[in-house]
Write a protein that binds this DNA or RNA. Structure first.
Lengths: 235, 235
DNA sequence: GGCCGGCATTAAGAACACGTCAAGATCATC
DNA sequence: GATGATCTTGACGTGTTCTTAATGCCGGCC
């Protein structure tokens, strides 16, 4: 079920959106100013953000920038004014689409579908296999030695971020922002605790990790195959 | 350079788009009906398609479907009519955005930038190859002789700055400011220590550097290939 | 030839980051 | 309201990384 966060300070619009989106089986949460909108983004992690630019407490462009600071979640902007310069500013700040009020509900829904469709690209290879375990991103399952491995929600999220960037180094800031939320970007403690738990559950030898590698001072890396330690592997 | 295909049957619009897009360093090709538009998509493989729905030979929706049959290239639809049902149909057929004529050129350009930005999360070529090692900026990884080279955070930052300015001289002040911070601009010692460490890890002969060159009194330079100074060195 | 400044190299202590453990707090479930 | 699982938080030992200073080298310059 797709989760949508609507940030708007006008009650009628909020109400209309909530009714229409809920009827189409979207899961809707709302906020009515910029600050609580940003907080809700971090807390709820919606799949799409519908954002009114005319908020009472802060400039909508700043909200866009705040969101773009840590996530690529699609943003559809609503705005009462037809000012072209504002459209340009919002789009260049990272918005995905821009709809001027009054808008047709059917059009907004279609643009919403388009945004969601783009954001979830064809699940190329949602299954990652290593010699010791298999991660099925779509089914949210990990199998090791033919048996399911039980992961807590936080453990799973951390593993998912790492696996989605397989082979690439993911910085601590990014991991913390994506798993715990942008306000946790300095709690590197959490990473150590959960990296250790994942290793205990997945690594054949948890004390000498082969897949969940630490890059001291920088972050972590999920190494899927292991082109290493093989003697004389040319190329 | 981003390549744009514009499919439209109205000469003035085609002309305006060509002028504006070319001025912004886009590479523009055009077609003026659906059939030749589809052919041009297959032939030119543009990065974005700007498509007018009102074409003489076929329904624009069919063009969208035809394109979506084999590629996810972003499609921005232009249309003269404000019919909401047509917007919905176009978006649901796979269009990424929908702009109604008359449109502001600045807005269209902003929407174009947004579409391109979404489609190419990797903006440039983040891999630099030399005969002796490979630097992958995106993965934050250096491979030499098929094996990973471990770099500390400071070593990596220094290398990254140099590689990002490959071939060009980077002054000591700039290096110190970018790696250690602006208040360290006189600590040239740090540079010597870390340049030496990088050379020890990357250069085939650290005492006679081939890639991390010192420019005495000025700074350092990363020399990627080596089209340099090779006086018939029969290696 | 001797002097001097900039660079390379090395080594040591200090500062920091990591992995680990365990206890308290919170949440979900019944 | 009790129970079990999960998450948060702090402390500690260990290993790595950063900083800093000392030394030697090479060039240009007087």
């Amino acid at each position: 079920m797709t989760r949508v966060l609507v940030v708007d300070d006008e009650a009628p619009i909020l109400r209309a959106l909530r009714i229409n989106l809920t009827a189409r089986e979207y899961q809707v949460t709302t906020a009515n100013d910029g600050a609580s909108g940003l907080a809700a983004m971090a807390r709820d992690r919606p799949d799409v953000l519908i954002l009114d630019l005319g908020l009472p407490d802060m400039d909508g462009i700043e909200v866009i920038k705040g969101v773009r600071g840590w996530t690529a979640t699609p943003i559809i902007v609503l705005s009462a004014w037809g000012q072209e310069s504002q459209k340009v500013a919002a789009l260049d700040a990272g918005a995905d689409d821009y709809v001027t009020k009054p808008f047709g509900m059917d059009e907004l829904l279609a643009r919403l579908r388009a945004a969601v469709r783009r954001a979830s690209p064809a699940p190329d290879e949602p299954v990652v296999v290593t010699p010791d375990f298999t991660v099925d991103l779509a089914a949210k399952r990990v199998v090791s030695d033919g048996a399911d491995v039980r992961l807590t929600p936080t453990e799973w999220q951390l593993l998912e971020v790492l696996v989605r960037h397989a082979g690439r180094l993911v910085t601590q800031r990014q991991l913390l922002a994506e798993v715990w939320g942008p306000q946790y970007q300095s709690e590197a403690n959490y990473l150590r605790v959960y990296a250790a738990q994942l290793r205990r559950k997945l690594e054949p030898d948890p004390s000498r990790p082969r897949y969940l590698l630490t890059e001291p001072g920088m972050g972590y890396r999920f190494q899927p195959g292991s082109p290493e330690s093989g003697p004389g592997r040319s190329s």
